[in-house]
Amino acid sequence: MKDWDYGELFEAINESYEEFLANGRGEKFAVARAFNEYANMGKIEDIITGVAIGEILASHDKVFIGYIEGITGWLSEVGKKDLKNELSDGEIENLLGRIATVIRDLRNKPIDSNPVA
């Protein structure tokens, strides 16, 4: 990760979400904007973005099925080997634990079939 510290990126994504949410357009809008703000920055950064967005979505009452399928499917493929040489051992273990929690929590969320933000 060339431009971000591990914890710093999680914090920035959450702050962006809160700022977009404060604009009064709703949770779906804030999630979409925060995701787009941090997408396509690099492999590890994208994994962290997926986890951070997944954690935010897990706090919602219902989650759009597209997010559930996309995030859980993609994060299910992430393994320790994907994270080596980019993160410390502690960060890797933390991230893998967060990935497992996001996958579990999103799969157990009530589904929102309306994608409109």
Rank of each mutant, 00 (worst) to 15 (best):
N14A: 01
G97L: 12
V63C: 10
L87H: 13
Y17K: 00
I103W: 01
K62C: 07
G42A: 03
E55W: 04
A100C: 07
Y38K: 00
T49H: 10
E91W: 07
K81F: 13
E11C: 01
I47Q: 12
R33E: 11
E27A: 07
I13K: 06
H60G: 02
A58R: 13
E15P: 00
A30M: 04
L21N: 01
G50R: 09
E11V: 07
E55M: 13
S59A: 11
G26F: 12
K28R: 13
Y38L: 00
G70I: 02
G79T: 13
F64E: 09
I56W: 10
E93D: 15
F64S: 00
D82K: 04
T101Y: 11
G73D: 11
K43E: 09
K81W: 09
A22S: 15
D89E: 15
S88Q: 08
A39T: 06
I103M: 02
L87Q: 08
S76G: 15
N14I: 01
A34D: 02
F29C: 02
S59T: 15
Y17G: 01
Y17T: 01
G97P: 06
F35E: 05
L75V: 09
A58D: 03
G70Y: 15
I92Q: 10
S76P: 10
G26M: 13
R25N: 14
F29W: 13
T101D: 13
D82A: 08
G24Y: 03
Y38V: 01
N23R: 15
W74Y: 12
N40Y: 14
D82I: 03
L75C: 12
L83S: 06
V31F: 02
L75E: 10
T49N: 15
D5T: 03
E55A: 05
G97C: 11
R33T: 02
A12C: 00
A32I: 00
G70A: 09
D5V: 11
Y6I: 04
G90C: 01
D5Q: 10
I99C: 08
D46K: 05
I56Q: 08
E93Q: 12
D61W: 11
G50P: 08
G97H: 04
Y67K: 06
E11M: 05
G7C: 02
E86K: 13
H60F: 14
Y17C: 01
G73R: 05
R25K: 14
T49F: 11
K62F: 12
